[in-house]
Amino acid sequence: MIDQDGYVHILSRADDTINVAAHRISTSSLEEVIVEHNEVAETCVVARPHSIKGSVPVVIAVLKHHRLDHTLDEIKNDLVREIRQRVGPFASLYPHNVIFVERLPKTRSGKVLRKMIRSMISKLAMDGNSPDVCPIPTPATIKEEAV
């Protein structure tokens, strides 16, 4: 997709799926819905282990840097509602699994470090630790280690 400012967005990947209660869901199908929200600039969806469903999606989103028209809770609820309507309620996205960050960790070439994010979410879910400290080693390919 090319937006009104001329930026190119690649909207699909076939290699990343989440198994939620025996439903295989492509993370790219969730990301496509999320980035269409007026307040969201960029997103990454990964799986979080769940004791009953196997896993559930976690949305890591970067908001656009302008005055927000909605509160963070309203945006979370909008995203959950859109996922339920367009993908289906079986996707099991809940507001507490939508996390807003300033930037996503990327490689020097601009790829989002999905494997690293997925590993962090899994490790934090198992340990129950605070996300203030990265629970896994930082890869050498990361562009900005502070992110």
Rank of each mutant, 00 (worst) to 15 (best):
Y94W: 07
F100W: 01
K53L: 15
D69F: 05
K123W: 03
P57S: 11
I136Q: 10
E32K: 12
S51L: 05
Q4M: 09
P57R: 11
H96S: 04
S29R: 08
T17S: 01
T141A: 07
E32I: 04
R24C: 00
I75Y: 04
P135W: 09
K115T: 11
K76W: 08
E42Q: 12
G54F: 04
V87S: 02
A14K: 15
P139L: 10
K76V: 08
P131V: 10
D127K: 12
K115H: 07
E36K: 13
V8A: 10
H70Y: 08
M116L: 14
A146R: 11
P57I: 14
A125S: 14
Q85R: 11
S28T: 13
D16K: 14
D78G: 07
E32T: 12
A21E: 07
S51R: 13
E31L: 06
D16F: 12
R13M: 07
C44R: 01
A146I: 13
E102Y: 12
V35K: 08
V101C: 06
A22C: 00
P137C: 03
D3Y: 09
E144I: 13
R118F: 08
K64S: 08
L93N: 02
I121S: 01
K143Q: 14
Y7K: 14
D5N: 07
E42K: 08
K76P: 01
A14E: 14
K123R: 13
H50R: 04
E32W: 15
R114G: 10
V133W: 04
I121V: 15
D132V: 11
I142P: 03
L79F: 06
E82I: 00
K115A: 06
V46K: 02
H37I: 00
N129V: 04
R103L: 02
D3I: 08
L63S: 05
A146D: 10
A47L: 00
V62D: 07
L79G: 05
S28G: 09
N77L: 14
E145W: 02
V20C: 15
I60C: 05
H65W: 00
D132H: 07
L72D: 05
L72I: 12
V46L: 04
V59K: 02
P135H: 02
T17Q: 08
G54V: 03
D78A: 12
I121T: 09
V33E: 05
V8Y: 15
C44M: 02
D15T: 09
D78T: 10
S109H: 07
E42G: 05
V98G: 03
K115L: 06
L79Q: 04
A146E: 13
L68E: 13
L30C: 01
S28Q: 09
S28Y: 08
E74S: 09
S130T: 13
R24Y: 10
A22R: 08
T107N: 07
R103F: 10
Y94T: 11
E102D: 15
M126Y: 11
M1I: 10
D132Q: 12
R103I: 03
L63P: 06
K64I: 07
D5P: 00
H50G: 02
G128N: 12
P135N: 04
I142W: 07
A41H: 07
R86V: 08
V46N: 03
C134K: 06
N77A: 11
I52A: 05
V40I: 15
R13W: 13
S26T: 06
K123A: 14
M1T: 11
D16L: 11
I52K: 08
D5T: 09
G88T: 05
H37M: 00
